[in-house]
Design a protein around this nucleic acid. Structure first.
Length: 368
DNA sequence: GCTCACCA
């Protein structure tokens, strides 16, 4: 591996920290596409002993595994175990979890956490209670957790990577992301394959051609999902063969990640009030066929009325044509249409827009 | 114009 000057200096700083074993946390921050995960994997390969890889969301953990971080899991499954509640509590929602002191973390030489801007204070503290050296990777310009603030990203980085390798340095998407970070507004115009256009200038063709449509508000998401389904000629209120779904809850045993995008391969006979489908991850080269049972309420916007017992009995999916930027955090697509709803996120508006823009790898259309 | 959401 050929490292850049910046990456080489980062590696050296991390290795010095590992030798000294102090302080407990090393913050290796960097903008999207600067090679943080690749560096961390390299560091891990040089460790004599076990390394635990983790991320806040199931989706981010899966991306980590795809990048070669073996056995990456959610931080939750890494450090917690279920705690049994007494029988008289059973009427209540009594899911409770305790720190698992037998966790692999307790034997590890190093913990590596990716997308650490999503980790809130409670989870961060519990993770550090194991006392292990913890290398946290993240982008401080991305969205913080909704509650508790960014536990790791509130402090200054030990190393900040700024050279983007994912795209060419003159890529307009990189330029736009820098503009937002530095407080400059996006100007209407065409920039290579990408563009910033007004709402009245977006056409159905552009939206249907995109790999992913991103919005800010759930209300908008529902509206666009409905509209895109109509444009694609789907008429059933429930998913048909070929439709794009987003998974809304992890199920490790089935290979389902919250935030993962799936396609309906087969629609089966509904049973006991559940819709039955075979779905597959929406990626090239995957043969996986996953059987799912979903309550129709999820596609009718009525899932909020379900009891938690009913909800737990169902796999959770919704239409995946449009996603919120919050849900898309940690994912990436070649061609993205982003509807700018930054106004709704007040003091985080720049972070919202930056996170949305950096979800695109090749082509981005921002609709303002 | 005026909110997003995670895990066991």
């Amino acid at each position: 591996m050929d490292w850049s000057v910046e990456q080489d200096a980062a590696l050296k700083a991390v290795k010095d920290w590992l030798k000294g074993r102090h302080p407990q946390v090393f913050r290796l921050f960097g903008f999207a596409g600067t090679g943080k995960t690749t560096l961390a994997r390299h560091v891990a390969e040089g460790i004599d002993g076990d390394v635990c890889f983790g991320a806040f969301t199931g989706k981010a953990a899966m991306v980590m595994r795809q990048k070669g971080c073996e056995g990456a899991t959610t931080i939750h499954s890494m450090i917690y175990r279920p705690r049994r509640k007494s029988a008289e509590d059973e009427e209540e929602e009594t899911f409770s979890f305790a720190i698992n002191h037998q966790s692999d973390v307790s034997k590890a030489k190093l913990i590596v956490i990716d997308e650490c801007s999503m980790v809130d204070e409670e989870l961060g503290r519990d993770l550090l209670s194991f006392g292990k050296p913890t290398l946290v990777l993240g982008d401080p310009a991305q969205l913080p957790p909704i509650k508790g603030g960014g536990f790791f990203t509130e402090a200054e980085p030990d190393v900040m990577l700024t050279e983007v390798h994912r795209q060419a340095a003159d890529n307009p998407i990189v330029r736009m992301s820098m503009d937002i970070r530095e407080g400059r507004p996006l100007e209407i115009g065409h920039y290579g394959q990408s563009s910033v256009i007004r709402r009245r200038d977006i056409d159905a063709e552009r939206i249907l051609a995109a790999d992913q449509v991103l919005v800010g508000l759930n209300r908008t998401r529902h509206g666009y999902n409905k509209r895109i389904r109509e444009l694609r000629g789907y008429t059933s209120p429930h998913p048909e063969v070929g439709e794009k779904l987003v998974c809304l809850r992890n199920d490790k045993s089935k290979g389902l990640q919250n935030g993962g995008i799936f396609r309906v391969n087969r629609r089966k006979e509904p049973k006991g009030g559940y819709l039955k489908y075979d779905v597959a991850p929406d990626e090239a080269g995957t043969r996986a066929r996953i059987h799912v049972s979903v309550l129709p309420d999820f596609f009718e916007g009525k899932e909020g009325d379900l009891s938690w017992q009913m909800r737990r009995s169902s796999d959770e999916f919704d239409y995946g044509y449009a996603l919120t930027v919050h849900k898309a955090q940690g994912s990436q697509w070649d061609d993205v249409v982003l509807f700018d709803e930054a106004f709704a996120f007040r003091e985080h508006r720049d972070r919202w827009l930056y996170t949305g823009v950096t979800r695109a790898a090749e082509t981005l259309t921002v609709v303002v």
